[in-house]
Amino acid sequence: MKINQIPSILAFLPVLCLVLIVQGASAAETGDTAPAVQLPQLQVDGSMALADFRGRIVYLDFWASWCPPCLVSMPIMNEMRNRLQAQGVPFEVVAVNVDSDPEDGIDFLLDKPVDFIVLSDPEGRSPADYKVVGMPTSFLVGADGVIAMRHQGFRRSDAQTIENEIMKLAGGMP
C-alpha cells in the first residue's frame, strides 16, 4: 500500500495517542516514592513538608469541607492518631485541605477540631502530583517515604483496614 493511500485521518492517530497517553499519566501508587509536599498550614502560620515526618508512618489525607465522607473520616482519624501515638506507634496524620477558599476549611475545623497538622493547598498542586481522582483520597506513607497504601473515599468500616496496615508497617520498623 502506498503512503498516499492511507486515509489522512490515520496520519493524526499517533498524535492523538500521544495526547491521550500524556493525559492518562499513572497515579501515585503503592510502592512509589511519595511526591514531595511542602505547604502552608491552614490554621496557623508557617509551612510544613512531608519530609519533616520521615521516620514516622504518615497518613496523608486530601480532603475538602464540601466532601461528606470527610466529615466521617476526620474525627475517626483524629481518634486513631491520638490512640496510636499514646501506644508509642510512630504515626502521624497530615491532612491537606483543598478548598479553593481556605476559610471553608477553617470553618469546618471549628466544628470538628482535630489535633493533627492540617495544610492548605487551594490551588490543588499536591493532589495533582498525587493524581487524586476523588475526595477524600489518602496515602499511607511508610517511614521510608514510600507509599504503602492508597485509599479512596471513606466509610467507618475502612478505619480498621487502615489501622491494620499502619500496625503492619509499625511491626516492620526497628
Binding site: 485521518i9 493524526f12 500524556v22 493525559q23 475538602a64 478548598d99 479553593s100 475526595m135
Partner: peptide, 24 residues
C-alpha cells in the same frame, strides 16, 4: 484535512475533566 486535524488533536489536551479538588 491533515492541517486542520493536527491543531485539533493538540487542543484535545484542553479537554480536561473537572478535577476532584475543584468540585466544591
Amino acid at each position: 484535512l491533515l492541517v486542520l486535524l493536527l491543531p485539533c488533536s493538540v487542543m484535545l489536551s484542553g479537554c480536561q475533566p473537572v478535577q476532584a479538588w475543584e468540585r466544591g
